[in-house]
Simulated scan of single mutants.
Amino acid sequence: MKEVTVPTASKKYTVFIESGLRHRVGRFLQDTLVKAPSSVFIISDSNVAQRYLTDVINSFESSIQIYEAVIPSGEASKSFSVYEQLLTKALESGLDRQSVIIALGGGVVGDIAGFVAATYMRGVRFIQVPTTLLAHDSSVGGKVAINHALGKNMVGAFHQPEAVLYDTETLFSLPNHEWRSGFAEVMKHGLIRRSDFYQWLVNEVTSFDGLSTELVNEMLERSIAVKAEIVTEDEKELGIRAYLNFGHTLGHAIETKLGYGRITHGEAVVIGMVFAMKLSEVVMQTTLPVEQFKAWLHSLQYQTDIPKELSAGDLLTVMKKDKKVEAGAIRMVLLRCVGEAVVKEVDDSTLLQAIEKALEG
């Protein structure tokens, strides 16, 4: 089993990575938690529940009271209405402050279940049990949230899990578009912090078909270690944690304008990373391997251009609502070189011109 420790200021916890972990969730709670749960509330989605919910339930002893809620699959479930439904279920089930919420699913489930945990009775414990590649990023670091019509992840909290139990066996049932979505965050960690890891990915991942369990486990361990290192240094995103938003400012704007679910989060972020690299060359007066990066992305079936149906003005308007905006100035995560990120204020006219140029292809 591979383990990555996340020693944040508010809580120290471990990410466990191994095939088949979903069958041992109950045992892990018994071994990991200082105080046993009074009850367990498992939140999953319609796709994941039919595959894995029974496995997780069966991992518990019969003496533990277990409640469950299944939300519709997809980004649209990170909404106020679904959030309220989950809180109602928690109240009706009589969850107390010693209850534990389990987020069984991808990034959407982890975000909304974590936000329920952060706000129910002013905060209860929760465990992340990610089932997608994308969730390797979102399940670590304690950022939990729901979406607003005017912006993604704009209503949320910092609430660290007690542990992350990553059953990598679940990844091999994912369709390729889910691999593409999650792999965007893997490559991001190399681009912003570890050039050697980025180059390893370029060399080792030439297709999402036929990846070995050993390679996937090593990839996750190395990627999560980058996330853990940054979160440990900056838990509340007051400094370098903003680097983790590389590609996200434009990516979130694309998701918002297209409508949540039209394009996966990671696929939007990839477009945002290509844009940010090109913008870095202009703002930072540097040279980056943009064309080589795009060629690799194309070999993995990524779209790298901003959808033509979107307008530069509309995208800029949404970008100005980003959480990193300060005093009306958009702060973009850029690269000095592969492996070294920086946050820079970029004026509206420069951004608008860059987006228009990207739309022209």
Rank of each mutant, 00 (worst) to 15 (best):
V338H: 00
N58E: 12
E360T: 07
S212T: 14
N176G: 07
S46Y: 11
Q199G: 00
I102Q: 03
A354E: 04
Y243C: 09
L33M: 12
V15M: 07
A145W: 00
F197P: 15
D348H: 08
T232R: 04
V343A: 01
S63M: 04
F16P: 00
E360V: 03
V100E: 06
Y67D: 08
D209R: 06
D196N: 13
N153E: 07
E281A: 15
I112Q: 12
L238T: 09
V346N: 02
V116H: 08
V338Y: 00
I71R: 01
L238N: 10
I43C: 06
S99P: 13
F275E: 05
F293A: 03
L91A: 01
K12E: 15
V100P: 09
A358L: 10
V108A: 07
Q199R: 14
S73D: 10
P72I: 09
P175G: 03
A118W: 15
I66A: 11
S311M: 06
A312H: 05
T132N: 10
S63R: 05
I57T: 02
M277T: 07
R122M: 10
L171M: 05
T256I: 12
S46P: 00
S139Y: 12
D314C: 00
L21E: 04
G261Q: 15
I66S: 14
S139A: 10
C337M: 00
